[in-house]
Design a protein around this nucleic acid. Structure first.
Length: 475
DNA sequence: TGAAATGTTGGGGCG
DNA sequence: ACGCCCCAACATTTC
């Protein structure tokens, strides 16, 4: 029986895994491999929160493979070197993988593919991550989409025609004796033991792995979809699917999710499911943009902003934003939720991004980099698109003059202050009507929360006006 | 997937 | 009864 390496990347699952299924279908004995190679990721190697998640996800995948009679071979170092070593050790004739779309990774993949083909290996990349790969979607004029609505209109029509998801193999051949699997600890993913275990709380919020991802999705499908369109904007309602980290690491298949939503819809269609599908559509749109505009992780998509007068960050104020001590409760609550749990509610992400880019007027990359390090769902396509959207520099972005007023946003989307109180316990006893902008009542603030910043680090109105003036100047 | 300023309208208090 | 003003509520425009 011929051996094939099945190279796992951001497809850490066994169900609906085209590379694994194809290797089996073609009669190969698969050797599952994961290679930790941050250098392949260019300027965006996995951040701290991502690495913690990745360690958990690999543990779960290895257990799932073990349970089916196989195992997961772990390696680190130069990807091509490690693949060649494994090919030599096993005598593998083929390599199967599922594609990634980050520009640096795609370039590395192209080199690897060419080098292995040149050695006579059968190399077969697949799509496990997207409803439609970016080069298969084009406008009537033949170019990439730059506006979400027509992009999604085109994509939405195709959903019913998606191929059925692939079942997980129930039994796998054993690993050959010629390879050792190596321990996860050798990859150096988790912070060393002597460092503060800042991520210790993550386990209260998350369980990485395919089983956990699917279980969470099932609960969401059952209880979360009705009313999703309305309640998703309220950060304390626990109405998000919270599937983003599972999706990022490929623990769950977006095709399988869509198929399940459509199947449920045939019984009882609803606004909630349509809205949820559209959110998956934003993810597709982000990958579409990243593929067609590969410089956007660092560069404005809209060059009009190239001369925009961003402010030079003051370290203390940037730090105040990062640590949730700006003095604006809804902003600080979001940044503390991020630090404590590795995740932030989407509505609050928009609020903290608007605050950074428009009130502080710091370049969106400062925000993108902090999110990259602290989010368990950090995803280059989504993170780039989200920040460029918020800053107004992206495709189909919020116009720059759309400046969120955090106090109004808090009053509208956290009307009883439950979200703010949950993440800023020092404000717990401030009366609800003053919780959105407590600086308006310095007497109450000093009495109830003496340790909380007594004034915002920027004047909201003055900084808003300054941002609008800066925008007018570069228009 | 905004907010604030400006404009319009209509009900009610009041001389 | 009438005109006038006030202002809340809503709509439109501007940033």
């Amino acid at each position: 029986m011929n051996l094939a390496l099945v190279w796992f990347r951001r497809d850490l699952r066994l169900s609906d895994n085209p590379a694994l299924t194809a290797a089996l279908a073609q009669g190969f004995r698969p050797v599952p491999v994961y290679i930790h190679a941050p250098v392949d990721e260019g300027d965006w190697p996995a951040g701290a929160a991502s690495r913690v998640w990745l360690a958990g996800s690999l543990t779960a995948l290895a257990a799932d493979l073990d349970a089916r009679g196989s195992g997961l071979v772990l390696r680190q170092g130069d990807t091509l070197t490690e693949l060649l070593n494994l090919i030599d050790a096993t005598g593998a004739r083929a390599l199967f993988w599922n594609r990634r779309y980050e520009p640096a990774v795609a370039r590395a993949d192209a080199r690897i593919e060419a080098a292995l083909r040149a050695r006579g290996l059968h190399v077969e990349p697949h799509n496990a991550a997207l409803l439609a790969e970016p080069w298969t979607v084009a406008t009537g004029a033949g170019g990439p989409y730059r506006v979400f609505t027509p992009f999604w209109r085109a994509m939405r029509q195709r959903l019913a025609d998606l191929a059925a998801p692939l079942p997980a193999p129930t039994r796998l051949p054993a690993l050959p004796d010629t390879v050792d699997v190596q321990p996860l600890a050798a990859l150096g993913l988790e912070p060393p033991p002597h460092e503060p275990r800042w991520h210790a709380g993550f386990r209260h919020f998350w369980t990485p792995g395919e089983d956990s991802a699917w279980a969470r999705f099932q609960v969401f499908l059952e209880h979360g979809l009705d009313g999703y369109a309305e309640s998703r904007d309220f950060p304390d309602r626990d109405s998000s699917s919270r599937l983003s980290p599972h999706l990022h690491f490929g623990e769950i298949s977006v095709r399988r999710m869509v198929a399940a939503v459509l199947a449920r819809d045939s019984v009882m269609a609803g606004q909630g499911s349509e809205r949820f599908l559209a959110e998956l559509g934003w993810r597709e749109f982000s990958y579409h943009l990243l593929h067609h505009f590969p410089d956007t992780p660092e560069t404005n998509l809209n060059p009009r902003f190239d001369g925009f007068p961003w402010a030079e960050p003051e370290p203390a104020r940037l730090r105040a934003w990062q640590t949730g001590r700006t003095g604006v409760p809804i902003v600080d609550a979001g940044m503390r939720q991020l630090w404590a749990s590795g995740w932030m509610h989407n509505r609050v992400r928009m609020i903290v991004a608007s605050f950074l880019c428009k009130n502080l007027r710091y370049h969106w990359l400062h925000g993108a980099r902090w999110f990259w390090d602290t989010l368990v769902d950090a995803d280059l396509a989504n993170n780039t698109q989200g920040w460029q959207w918020s800053a107004g520099t992206g495709a189909d972005a919020a116009p720059y003059f759309r400046v969120f007023n955090p106090a109004l946003q808090a009053a509208r989307f956290d009307p009883d202050g439950a979200y703010i109180r949950r993440w800023l316990p020092e404000l717990a006893s401030v009366p609800t009507r003053h919780l959105a902008e407590p600086w308006q009542r310095p007497d109450l603030l000093a009495r109830h929360a003496p340790d909380y910043p007594q004034q915002p680090i920027v004047d909201l109105k003055a900084s808003r006006d300054a941002a609008l003036a800066a925008y007018a100047g570069c228009r």
